[in-house]
Simulated assay, not measured.
Amino acid sequence: MSTARDLMIVTLDVTPGRPVESGDLSLALAGAELIDLNTDESLTLDGDRILPNVRLPQTDPLLDEASAALLREEPYEPVEEWLWRRGQGLSKAYVAVLEAEGQIARQRGRWIPVRTGRTALVDSPARQRAGARWAAGEPVLAALAAAVGIRDLPVEDDPGLTDESRLTVLAAVHDAVMELEGVRQRRKIEDAAFDNIWRGQ
Rank of each mutant, 00 (worst) to 15 (best):
A28F: 05
P139V: 06
P16K: 00
W84M: 07
G137S: 00
I112R: 03
K92D: 15
A4R: 05
R108L: 14
F194Q: 13
L37I: 08
V155Q: 14
L161I: 06
V140I: 10
P113G: 07
D36V: 09
T116Q: 06
R186N: 12
A32R: 02
G89V: 05
A193L: 15
W82E: 02
E80N: 13
A130S: 12
W198E: 07
T59N: 12
E101F: 05
E80Q: 14
L29A: 10
D24C: 08
G102F: 04
E33K: 04
G47N: 01
R108Q: 13
V20S: 06
R106S: 13
Q58I: 13
V79R: 00
D163H: 03
N38E: 14
P78T: 08
S91D: 14
V173F: 02
V183E: 14
L90K: 02
G182P: 07
R151V: 01
L45Q: 00
S22F: 05
E138R: 11
L83A: 06
D157I: 06
V169H: 00
D36W: 01
I9G: 09
D195E: 13
P52Y: 00
E156W: 05
V20Q: 03
A120R: 15
V79H: 00
L90V: 04
R151H: 10
P154C: 06
A142M: 11
V54P: 02
N196T: 08
A28P: 11
V140Y: 05
D175R: 15
A145E: 03
L51S: 00
F194N: 12
L121F: 03
E179W: 02
L37D: 01
D48R: 09
G200K: 10
L29C: 08
P75Q: 01
D123H: 11
A172C: 03
H174I: 08
D175E: 13
R49W: 03
A171T: 15
G137H: 00
T116M: 04
D46Q: 05
V177W: 08
A105G: 09
V95M: 14
L37T: 06
W84L: 13
H174Q: 15
R133H: 11
D60H: 15
E156R: 13
D46R: 03
L141F: 08
Q201W: 12
D13P: 06
